Amino acid sequence: MYDVTPVEKGAPVHFKMPDPAFYEALGYEGMKDLMYRFYDEIYESSIANFFPQDEEEFEKVKERNARFFIQLCGGPNVHIESEGKDLNEYMIRLHDEFSIYEKSRYEWLGCMETVLRETDIPQELKENFWKYLEAFSKLTVNSFTDGSHFYAAYTQAVQDN
């Protein structure tokens, strides 16, 4: 099992971008396959309601988010060319319109854990990618069980070298 640490409301989130070796190990089509399998897991999960239920619209989400992760992991600039937005800011702002609790974050990470376990690349590359996702996903949590809300400011994201 991959480690998951809790969100601390208002605390800065430190993260490192994924090692480009992750993309190199999978290649463009492998990354696309990984992300499509991930979103297929999402579609069957308890957080499916965050995504369009129309199959054609959901396919567009899969395509757009696959481009995001391909570029994020060191692939070609396919996301910025189609969306024209900074990768990390896009990831945070995309979630502002939803009330995302820690439980939803755990479900999202669980879907990714499932597909990573099924992916045939070295474990250290999967763990490196996981560390990025685990840390950065904290920035999407904006609602808390105490009834409070906190919308992560982009400045909370601290990219370490």
Rank of each mutant, 00 (worst) to 15 (best):
L87R: 02
L87Q: 04
F136W: 03
T5L: 14
S82C: 02
E127G: 08
N77P: 13
Y106A: 09
F68R: 08
D120F: 07
Y106L: 15
F51D: 05
L87S: 09
A66R: 06
K103Y: 07
K85W: 05
V115L: 08
Y2W: 08
E56Y: 14
I92D: 06
E127D: 14
G30N: 03
G27Y: 09
E97R: 15
E107N: 13
F98G: 04
D96E: 13
E97Y: 12
D146Y: 06
A157K: 02
K85R: 15
Q156M: 15
K60F: 11
I80P: 05
G75H: 02
E97W: 10
A152Q: 05
G75V: 00
V13Q: 10
E8P: 01
K16E: 15
K62W: 00
H95R: 09
V4K: 09
I121R: 01
S143Y: 04
Y90N: 10
Y101V: 07
Y90A: 14
G30S: 01
A25L: 05
A152G: 07
Q156A: 09
T155P: 00
P76E: 09
L72S: 03
V4A: 10
W130F: 02
D19H: 05
M91P: 00
G10Y: 02
L72H: 03
T5P: 00
L109G: 08
Y28G: 02
K85S: 11
F136T: 09
V7T: 12
W130P: 04
I92W: 03
T145G: 00
E89P: 08
E63N: 11
A48G: 12
N49G: 15
K126D: 02
A21Q: 12
Y101R: 12
C111F: 01
Q53H: 15
M91N: 13
Q156L: 15
I70S: 06
